[in-house]
Amino acid sequence: MFKRTFALAVGVALSLSAAFTHAADVLRVSAIPDEAPTELLRKFKPLGAYLEQQLDMKVEFVPVSDYAAVVEALAADRLDLAWLGGFTFVQAHLKTGNAIPLVQREQDAVFTSKFISADPAVKSLQDLKGKTFAFGSISSTSGSLMPRYFMLKEGIDADTFFSRVAFSGAHDATAAWVQAGKVDGGVLNASVWDKLVASGKVDTDKVKVFATTPPYFDYNWTVRGTLDPALTAKLKAAFLALDPANPEHKAILDLQAASRFIETNAENYQGIEQAARAAGLLK
């Protein structure tokens, strides 16, 4: 009986060891769902292949249902690396106490949001008073938090200023809503707006940008604080090594809407945390 029990214990131990070894050989990556899931996966595939080559390990993209799910997964160590908006990073950092922002795109240090409308009479936010308006996700930095913050600084409370406020859930959906006349105006991040215009997915004869926010810090690639420091260092080096002069690297950077990646740190997002507290989104 002792031999059978010992053998069973060894078997369980080996199985658990194999499971942990397997988990350690896979880098689990996700992103806030600020665009359609198919688009997020399309953008990630070449980057994932590059990271597999640089890290010599499997890289797996794990889609999530909403912004909060990314924060929860990082906190529970179910994700290793995630593409986060500024506010989502603040939430993850506060929840985990150790989430580490690795890199951001150059433009993420001076990011902006675009206010749009299909009504040619709309020249400013004041022209939308009493009309309908769409934000992206309620947890979006560029699609909700920072535009609201800058509006409040101008004395505009979105919840009382507009007749109805809606949340589209994603930047591309906001543009589609405005173009289809579902809402009179909306706001989305500048990067997605530029991509939609370049790809012809928004008709600029119908939809116009009538205002742009002041700049702020936004997106970054964040790792869980419990990730092996050596792997964290290799990840950062891999992102920083992406060179726009290399055609293969440029294809990856273009899909990420990045000229290149630069280092970042948690202090860069203190302004977003202050804005979130001012808006009552953080206690």
Score class of each variant (00 low, 15 high):
86 G>F: 02
252 I>N: 09
204 T>K: 06
152 L>A: 14
25 D>C: 14
49 A>L: 12
124 S>P: 08
98 N>F: 07
209 V>N: 04
127 D>H: 06
157 D>C: 07
30 S>W: 01
60 E>A: 08
80 D>G: 11
117 S>M: 02
203 D>C: 00
165 V>A: 07
176 A>M: 09
127 D>W: 05
93 H>N: 15
226 T>H: 15
249 H>I: 01
137 S>A: 14
132 T>L: 14
232 T>E: 13
217 F>E: 08
74 L>I: 06
95 K>N: 10
38 T>N: 13
110 V>E: 14
244 P>A: 12
135 F>V: 01
206 K>H: 06
167 F>P: 05
130 G>Y: 07
13 A>L: 15
219 Y>W: 06
134 A>F: 07
130 G>D: 03
256 Q>S: 06
153 K>V: 03
10 V>R: 07
277 R>Y: 10
27 L>Y: 10
226 T>G: 12
238 A>P: 02
217 F>V: 09
41 L>R: 12
239 F>A: 04
34 D>G: 07
125 L>S: 09
165 V>C: 07
257 A>T: 12
88 T>L: 11
146 M>L: 15
265 N>G: 07
30 S>D: 02
56 D>S: 13
55 L>W: 08
275 A>T: 04
129 K>I: 03
216 Y>G: 00
53 Q>R: 11
96 T>W: 08
81 L>V: 10
278 A>E: 14
138 I>S: 15
123 K>C: 05
144 S>I: 03
257 A>E: 13
202 V>I: 13
203 D>R: 02
95 K>R: 08
179 Q>K: 03
172 D>Y: 04
118 A>P: 04
27 L>M: 07
191 S>K: 14
24 A>M: 04
229 P>D: 05
199 S>E: 15
171 H>W: 08
76 A>V: 06
53 Q>P: 05
45 K>L: 10
14 L>A: 11
169 G>W: 09
131 K>S: 06
234 K>H: 00
89 F>K: 06
98 N>V: 04
155 G>Q: 01
68 A>M: 10
138 I>R: 15
238 A>K: 08
113 S>G: 10
46 P>K: 00
